[in-house]
Design a protein around this nucleic acid. Structure first.
Length: 296
DNA sequence: ATAGGGTTAATT
DNA sequence: AATTAACCCTAT
């Protein structure tokens, strides 16, 4: 009879990720032949690897049942949104491993005022944010990047709505409509207790429960997923993403400083460390995208 | 050999 | 019943 379905073990999954890291996405046969992974993956075929990789990335992005449709939408949006400001990067190909990208693309593009469009999206932004947080269903809450991605996927975003998003998140948090725990936002009802709205209390509670062992693997997997995606991108897409990553990293660093300033000593340490970790990973992601761009 | 669409088994 | 994950099929 047919094979009863072999579920992937964490070891196999780890081997696959490592293999992709070493050989790149799509080199399934190569990964399989590599003696370092051939042992663990001996029960798997190259097609299995491909399929599993697809599943990993789908889940890592919090896609629901309609991943395909959203992927299609996303792609068309990304293609249609190339500003051209980023593409002028490929000039220096040699020893430039750090600041190839002069990132200010997200600030103000030549758009004068589109009152109708911006106003409408602004009006819905509160709702969209809440919708994003609830639909993403991330147990530990969703960070700003995830929320932004969710919104970008479904609705056309204003040229730079990241700033607006930050402001709105802040407002929603202080008004109690969102709970912020370690730079991740979740809806109050999911937090079991709804009456206490002292954000500092929540902060401490969350810290104790998650104990930072929980949060790091999550972030790492997210970054891994995005790294993998950059490897399957075109140079233009990678450039756009890289620029975005730089902007995000800058924002993260700025927020870290802000947090450090206004929090007490112990909390400041934790907050700053977390923010710094995110910033560092964003930077790493940026470097990889840049590297890819050079190769291609 | 790989990517992508599609199907079926398993989880919730 | 709905969602997810492993598996299968086909075109490139």
């Amino acid at each position: 009879m047919g094979a009863p379905k072999q579920r992937w073990t964490p070891e196999e999954e780890a081997a696959l990720k490592a293999g992709v890291r070493k050989h790149g996405v799509g080199k399934w046969r190569t990964i399989l032949k590599d003696p370092e992974f051939s042992g663990v993956l001996s029960m798997r075929s190259n097609v299995d690897l491909k399929d599993k990789w697809r599943n990993i990335n789908v889940t890592a992005y919090g896609w629901g049942s309609r991943g395909k449709a959203r992927a299609a939408l996303k792609k068309s949006r990304q293609i249609s949104r190339h500003d051209g400001a980023l593409v002028s990067v490929g000039t220096t190909v040699e020893d430039t491993d750090t600041e190839i990208i002069d990132a200010k693309p997200l600030t103000m593009s030549s758009e004068p005022h589109q009152t109708t469009g911006q106003k409408r999206s602004l009006f819905r932004l509160d709702t969209l944010i809440l919708e994003a947080v609830t639909n993403l269903k991330e147990p530990a809450g969703s960070d700003k990047a995830a929320i932004a991605m969710y919104i970008e996927d479904r609705y056309w975003p204003p040229t730079d709505f990241k700033q607006l998003l930050s402001a709105k998140l802040k407002a929603l948090t202080s008004s109690g409509r969102l709970i912020k725990v370690k730079r991740k936002y979740s809806t109050p009802s999911s937090s079991a207790f709804s009456e206490e709205k002292s954000s500092k209390l929540l902060l401490l509670e969350g810290r104790q429960r998650e104990s930072r062992v929980d949060i790091k693997p999550l972030l790492k997997s997210q970054v891994d997923a995005e790294l993998a995606r950059t490897q399957s991108m075109t140079a233009q897409e990678a450039a756009a993403l890289a620029a975005k990553a730089v902007a995000e990293a800058e924002a993260a660093i700025a927020e870290a400083e802000e947090a450090a300033r206004e929090a007490e000593a112990a909390e400041a340490d934790a907050e700053a460390a977390q923010a710094f970790a995110e910033a560092a990973m964003l930077t790493l992601r940026n470097k990889n995208a840049t590297k890819l761009m050079i190769q291609v």
